[in-house]
Design a protein around this nucleic acid. Structure first.
Lengths: 346, 346
DNA sequence: CTGAAAGCGCTTACAG
DNA sequence: CTGAAAGCGCTTACAG
């Protein structure tokens, strides 16, 4: 018999006890005398026995697996940030004895894809799930919450009557935008443009709102020609600059991009047109992407601790699954300016 | 009753059939009349019923989950390549109705960590697993193969008596190195150095062997001072150049790095010392990393199709799991030179 | 074509 | 402290 085929019956027989006792040893019941425990453990180790996870789950144990759902509107899959998020979730789940089933959702409008996501929950493959990249309100996620599944949503706020099984997390984008505008204002900029992110996402909206408020607070006017659409992808930075330069009107002296990828794209396109950064236009990003420090010019940006955020989210989800400490439902983290070389004084 | 709590008994009752019939409908048995099937399907859809995966597994079905094990000697976790590998496996597994449980192995010497990996297999959480970044012979992987688990190993060759449950994949590093040396020779270089990768890995060894053979074929001499140790991480490129420049001897006119990350590190350190690439030294990488085209200078390298390789590996593993087409056991892919700006004629 | 029943490998009240 | 037994939710020969 292959070792991998032993079951609790075999262990019980070999140890001279009942399956109940084997189970008690495995589950660390306190009422097993050391002697019995040792006897059983010896056989378990000798035969390399691990209880079948499906049988455990069916008998009422948790699956000890969490789902990680990446909604890929664009290039999440090709970005190093994604990798950091995945690794952070896996590493921290692992520390708590949990496994991670990662799933990529290419289109939230594709019913087959969404059916597949729901299936993962309904089939009880996972004890809970984390969603990254979701729009402000995704009907299928709302359904899962209604059904009682434990769900963590990155970049979302708590609704009015928060359900106990909903966990949300978000960055203080307001604060980030205020820092960006304040820094530029301090450098003497008054003509500040912005390239927006995906406005279907919370961070897209709050960054823009933060920008508007910060401009007002600093007594600066927002020129509508300098408010450009985007979607958090590098290509949208390229496109935004093409639009701006194509208009032929006056140019801003500084631009804040919804994230660093967008900033990279914008800077690239500006260069193409002979506009130098920061000599001609200052650019400031958001996120502090892994490449921003290495970029030419090194990108001034707003740092955001994705890894730390996902760590908290993961731990909080697990705590909720195990229904300990059901206190935290919203995780908010601040962000802060990192000055590098992409902005100059005017 | 929450929809998510219906089971096959409830569906059977609601559809007026037995659980056997519900199961037959779900499993697409041919001997169910259309009328019965429709009747049952209607209830299934209405109640959002999905069979419990643990119960299915326990009753003999596959878990439809594969494990993806990333052995992280260094910075696999912080690299965009890793992300591409993960995404490729998930996407292609998903197309075939499989899920992916991703796991990070930080130290193959840590018995707790390895026990955990074995546990995933023995617990039957997965139907098979893919290992990335393993040394040439990892005892714990060998054990899993012996136990009959289906295993795919990236960057490994088939042993003499290949087991049917072992799948390996590798790139033709020989060919890649020959192209690199040939190109440099064509540019007039005769003084060619090399920064090795991790020699515990197959690709580390075969790249170096390919280098030696190619040099011989081109009638060039290998200067032992220009053969530098490394480990596939960027920092080893830095370190290798520091060593080389520290020796104070004659410098090679060209260097081949074990991969692009190492090349990045090497170029950075050369710049620090005022040595320009490609003006003073030509550098050629390996992999065609996502950043190589954007690098300054754009890196000449050997392109390797990681994504395609992982796709094949994933499909092959699934085919083996479902025991169809048990033909392919080794997947080999060629690689090819991509000329950019980091090498010059001498 | 379909249902009753056994069985997959566990856990956990229950009884002693 | 420990075993016998029920039960978790499925699948699949078996019998009809």
């Amino acid at each position: 018999m292959k070792k991998s085929e032993v079951n609790s019956t075999a262990i019980a027989r070999l140890a001279g006890v009942s399956r109940s006792t084997v189970s008690r040893v495995i589950n660390n019941y306190s009422n097993v005398p050391t002697e019995t425990r040792d006897k059983v453990m010896k056989v378990i180790q000798q035969y390399n026995y691990f209880p079948n996870a499906s049988a455990q789950a069916l008998a009422g144990k948790r699956s000890r697996t969490i789902g990680l759902f990446l909604i890929d509107q664009g290039h999440v899959a090709g970005d190093i940030l994604t990798n950091m998020l995945i690794v952070s979730v896996i590493a921290h789940a692992s520390e708590h004895g949990y496994y991670v089933l990662t799933h990529i959702i290419r289109h939230t409008k594709d019913t087959e894809v969404i059916k597949n996501v729901r299936e993962i929950f309904y089939q009880r493959r996972i004890d809970g799930g984390i969603f990254i990249g979701a729009a402000i309100r995704e009907p299928f996620i709302e359904e899962l919450i209604e059904e009682g599944f434990t769900v963590g949503i990155f970049d979302q706020e708590l609704p009015e009557h928060p359900e106990p099984n909903r966990i949300v997390s978000n960055f203080n984008n307001d604060s980030g935008m205020k820092q960006a505008v304040a820094y530029l204002a301090g450098l003497g900029h008054t003509k500040i443009g912005v390239i927006n992110g995906d406005m279907k996402r919370l961070s897209g909206q709050t960054k823009y709102e933060g920008f508007l408020m910060a401009m007002r607070m600093c007594g600066l006017e927002v020129n509508p020609d300098w408010v450009l659409d985007g979607d958090f992808n590098e290509s949208s930075g390229v496109h935004a600059m093409r639009t701006l330069l194509g208009k032929g009107g006056e140019l801003p002296t500084a631009i804040i991009a919804a994230n660093d990828s967008v900033a990279f794209g914008a800077i690239r396109e500006l260069k193409e047109h002979g506009v130098q950064v920061p000599e001609d236009i200052s650019v400031i990003g958001f996120d502090d992407h892994a490449l921003s420090a290495k970029h030419h010019p090194a990108l001034t940006t707003i740092r955001v601790d994705f890894s730390g955020m996902l760590k908290r989210m993961t731990l909080c989800l697990i705590a909720r699954i195990e229904d300990k400490t059901p206190v935290v439902r919203e995780i908010s983290l601040d962000c802060s300016l990192v000055v590098r070389d992409s902005c100059r004084r005017v």
